[in-house]
Design a protein around this nucleic acid. Structure first.
Lengths: 155, 155
DNA sequence: GGGCAACTTGACGTTAACGTAAACTGCGTG
DNA sequence: CACGCAGTTTACGTTAACGTCAAGTTGCCC
């Protein structure tokens, strides 16, 4: 009873609007292998996406933008997604060998940890930059106080 | 007694090495007006930089890299630096009109606040991404536990 | 003052990540 | 079922941010 609402299935234009990009970009990502296109498409037919694809694409764009990755780097970094897709695919196909699943999930976990480590590094770098700027700000404030002191109420 | 050591004055190659970039990039930045070239250069003579330039360039590259700015955007964002240079220039030139200084420093402060706001936005976006990844990680861990539970000590 | 590495300007080359145009096609609607 | 908009493939165009090459110059060291 979890598939009550069929989910309207988005076309590429809607998906683009939803994630704040363009159809061209989405096709390009698919072409680069970052977005496994909808399977079993009539070769010439319209692409159809789900709500899950919205979430996924948002994540891809976030990773790229916030970590400053090239599409090639992004490709290497998001293999966790592929692993995740694998899990679902194998489960759907009825494959449930626990050892195999454990293997796949473990690998996905490793990739997630990689992504998290990249995020943490970025956060550290940003914190350093912030500190730097804060120090400059303090110095500027100090200078202002000094000037205000000298003028003693000018305008 | 604060100018005891004259500071060796770096050439473009050394500066590039110090900040982790290339001479070409430095010249390009100067060409774009992001790095006011050393003043009073013999037109054809070698560029000479100071330790302050090292710090400054590092900041520029950090801002660009960590905020994902284009060089054009960077140019607009770093006007605080120009203001700061102005302050020093005017002070060196003997100009000390308090109102003028106050004006300049205030403007610089505004630019610093702009930069800080950009940093903070980025930090928020990164935090959101981190949360997202952490949730996925927890789910993966949960799935692993379930599998391990079912196999009860396999390998 | 001669040598040579590092620099200078100028020009053209390169690459990633799309934009854009053209000609055709699928698909929901009246 | 015709219509028209959104989508499809193919291909060439564009832009930022440098890389690279050539030919000449500067600056420091012996």
């Amino acid at each position: 009873m979890s598939t009550t609402i069929p989910a309207p299935a988005l076309r590429i234009g809607e998906l683009a609007r939803r994630v704040g990009t363009t159809p061209r970009t989405i096709r390009y990502y698919e072409e680069r292998g970052l977005l496994g296109g909808p399977p079993g498409r009539p070769a010439g037919g319209h692409r159809a996406y789900t709500e899950a694809d919205v979430t996924r694409l948002r994540e891809l764009l976030s990773l790229r933008e916030l970590l400053g990755l090239s599409l090639e780097e992004l490709g290497r970094v998001i293999e966790a997604e592929s692993a995740r897709a694998l899990v679902r695919a194998e489960i759907e196909a009825g494959v449930e060998d626990p050892a195999r699943l454990r293997e796949i999930v473990t690998e996905a976990l490793g990739h997630l940890d990689l992504q998290l480590s990249l995020v943490h590094r970025r956060q550290a770098e940003l914190a350093a930059l912030e500190d730097d700027l804060q120090q400059r700000r303090q110095r500027a404030l100090g200078r202002l106080a000094g000037i205000a002191d000298a003028t003693a109420g000018g305008d």
